[in-house]
């Protein structure tokens, strides 16, 4: 027993665990690559994403234009990179916004018995709506803008997080270390953050990864349907929406943003799967 304590044994960290799972690790590397490409867009591409060159319109992929050009002669490769900035940023913002609402609701429902029934019913009601439909309704009500898309999707995905948080909170609430804190007279908000929230970061992280993937897909869907971010900001969804009209003449306008969505979402799902395998409290040995 003392040997364990004295050897300074440490549990393998997240990255080491990820490395043992090639698919999750591949997903993570691709995500990082996508983010780096999006960030370095101005360095990588010599073109301006909004630069019109009508004489160059509908050019197939070439060394000049790796992914070809679109109906207004803009470089598709450049636009895919810049769109990645919007799509990934919106996805991430949705995760943050949904987490704030979801964690709050979940903690309240899970920790305070009296709030459980009303909050849980609210969550159920929200989840009864189809995701995209609810998002469209919210964006329609709020007006189409990047901020409102984030708010709408955040509201759509918050109930999922709230459920996960509530379920874990119900378990953690009964653990002796929470009771010990109560016996010491630690204020309830401190117990909620220090003892409950800190011990549900694992399921939260897993769920957040999946919501990240879903949010990118949903944002593309909204933009495709024309109820998302304004068309002059390039996103993968708007690119596909435009490309659809030229599908038979210039299919590359649609292929490449579509491919970018597939790769990003798939990679995030792989990361989420990997994380769930070793972080989910029902499978993990601690918690």
């Amino acid at each position: 027993m003392a040997a364990i304590a004295q050897s300074g044994f440490r549990e393998p960290n997240l990255l080491m665990k990820m490395a043992s799972r090639p698919t999750a690790m591949a997903g993570l590397l691709i995500i990082i690559a996508m983010i780096v490409l999006a960030l370095l867009a101005p360095v990588i591409s010599p073109y301006d994403p909004a630069q019109l060159a009508v004489r160059n319109r509908l050019q197939p992929p070439s060394w000049q234009h790796l992914f070809g050009t679109d109906d207004l002669g803009r470089d598709v490769f450049t636009r895919v990179l810049y769109s990645g900035r919007t799509s990934i940023t919106v996805g991430f913002a949705v995760v943050i916004f949904a987490s704030i609402i979801g964690v709050f609701l979940g903690l309240m429902a899970g920790f305070f018995r009296r709030l459980d029934a009303p909050v849980s019913r609210l969550i159920d009601a929200m989840m009864a709506f189809p995701d995209i439909l609810l998002a469209i309704a919210l964006v329609a009500a709020l007006g189409a803008s990047a901020t409102n898309v984030v708010i709408a999707l955040g509201v759509v995905y918050a109930p999922r997080l709230a459920r996960v948080v509530r379920a874990s909170t119900l378990v953690i609430r009964e653990l002796p270390y929470v009771e010990a804190a109560r016996a010491l007279g630690v204020p309830t908000p401190v117990i909620l953050v220090r003892h409950v929230l800190r011990n549900l970061t694992s399921p939260l992280l897993v769920q957040a990864t999946f919501i990240f993937a879903n949010a990118i897909l949903a944002e593309a869907g909204l933009s495709f349907l024309g109820v998302g971010i304004s068309p002059d900001i390039p996103t993968w969804g708007t690119m596909i929406s435009v490309g659809r009209q030229y599908l038979d003449q210039a299919p590359w306008i649609m292929w490449f943003p579509g491919g970018a969505i597939i790769i990003t979402v798939l990679s995030l799902q792989l990361v989420g799967d990997g994380l769930r395998d070793f972080l989910d409290p029902r499978l993990a040995k601690d918690v």
Partner: peptide, 24 residues
Amino acid sequence: EMKDWRKRLQIVFQDPYSSLNPRM
């Protein structure tokens, strides 16, 4: 009022594994 009295009454738990917050 009970909060002020709590420090005079303490508890040691049965399960030494779940009585310590694993993240602290």
